[in-house]
Amino acid sequence: MPESDFAPWNDPDEKPLIRFKSVTKKFGDFTAIDDLTLDIYEKEFFALLGPSGCGKTTMMRMLAGFEAPTRGVIELAGQDIAPVPPNKRAVNMMFQSYALFPHLSVYENIAFGLRRGDMPKHDIGDRVAEMLKLTRLEKFAARKPHQISGGQRQRVALARSLAKAPKLLLLDEPLGALDAKLRQATQFELMDIQEKTGTTFVIVTHDQEEAMTVASRVAVMDEGRVIQVATPEHIYEMPNSVYVADFIGDVNIIEGTAKPVGSERYEISWADNKAPLIAASERPFSEGQNCHLAVRPEKIAISAERPADADNAVEGKVLDIAYLGNISTYHVELPGGQIVKAQAANTRRVSRRTFTWEDTVWISWTATAGVLLPQ
């Protein structure tokens, strides 16, 4: 979904579907969620991303009703959901294990929740047929879970979760059991199904690539706090801290001290007897302030000669080369011992590399290629 078409978080009149208001969750002395405030909007595919133990599953369990906040309020569609038991919430949860009934067919697994509700019998058949079609499982309706593949079982769990048309679907590491290729294909299926149903999806994952692929917005978490919430593009190109820059994708972090040299331009002193680096930044820095310049490897060029017009050019030595088919990543050691990664696209089918180990090279990048961060 193009961001320009769908950005309710930028509309001040749009009411969030889910609101965490100063929510804290403690287990004994341990604080799993620390004073969290967060809005999630209707029809969003929202990702909670972070390392194990950062609190993302606890947030999800509170939304599902399996845990209650120690302090603060969680609202769904404007109502405090704390007093509402899990089975009465317009929320469904899809577990990592899928939790399918092994003795029931695919059809019966999907129908199970509907039969326990008060849906008329003739409507159940229609709804199950609709879910089978949505998840492309019509041909497998009579099979048992052990007779279908892992990817198909994942779709059965999804169909069952969506059958009761919840306002909100929670997905806990839903693709964890799938192999890499299937996982990628399933990510796009999930996005397609989410768009078709218009259900709000909240996915918990520690896989940054997954979060960046499927989500309209990503919340990067650490130790019970949300560090940054933004669109995948914004998180990647404009991280608000070294933690976020480092957590998402590959990045070079060069530490130094800043000195303003004009409108939104800074010189960064980073190594003894080395020319300062130049960086553009809308975020202000004072003279002598410690800073971190975060530059993605694909934004750094590598060349045999010093480029004539580069804002930043540093000489170094090739220490290591990672050949990844479409790109090669060069690990270049700078005079101070710092190692910087630079990427080059392998556009031609050649067996001979332009640069090899121990070669002296120049790495260069523009003043706007990096992000200047205070911490």
Rank of each mutant, 00 (worst) to 15 (best):
A177M: 12
L178D: 09
K139W: 12
A215Y: 07
I235V: 06
R155I: 10
S161V: 03
A180T: 12
Q154I: 07
T200M: 00
V202F: 06
A185G: 05
K133C: 08
E233D: 13
K139T: 14
Q154K: 13
V202E: 03
R160T: 09
P174H: 11
E189H: 00
A142W: 13
T205H: 03
V220P: 01
G151Y: 10
K133S: 15
Q154R: 11
L182W: 05
D222F: 13
A230Y: 02
T199Q: 00
R143S: 13
F201Q: 07
A129K: 12
D192V: 00
P145C: 10
L171F: 02
P174R: 09
E223P: 00
T200P: 01
A141C: 13
I227C: 06
H146D: 15
T200V: 02
I148Q: 13
K144H: 14
E130T: 13
I203S: 15
M221I: 05
G150A: 04
L170T: 03
T186F: 07
K144W: 12
V204M: 04
D192H: 12
P166E: 01
K144C: 10
S161R: 04
V229S: 11
L134P: 11
K164S: 14
R153G: 11
M131S: 07
A142M: 15
R183D: 09
L132G: 02
R183L: 06
V204W: 05
I235T: 06
L171H: 02
I148S: 09
G224E: 06
A211H: 10
Q184F: 12
D126Y: 10
V226E: 05
D123F: 11
H234V: 13
L132I: 05
Y236V: 02
Q184K: 14
R143T: 06
M212F: 02
L170G: 08
I124C: 03
Q147E: 15
T135F: 03
P232W: 04
T205L: 02
V156K: 07
E210D: 06
R153P: 14
I193D: 00
Y236I: 07
T199N: 03
G176L: 04
A215K: 01
E233H: 07
A141I: 13
E173R: 05
R217A: 10
H206S: 11
T231S: 12
D222K: 13
A215W: 03
E210W: 06
R183E: 03
D179V: 02
V214S: 04
Y236E: 08
I148E: 12
D207Y: 08
D222H: 14
K196N: 03
G224T: 03
M191P: 00
R160I: 08
R217P: 04
L190R: 00
F201M: 08
F188R: 13
G125D: 15
E138D: 15
G224P: 04
A180S: 12
P232G: 07
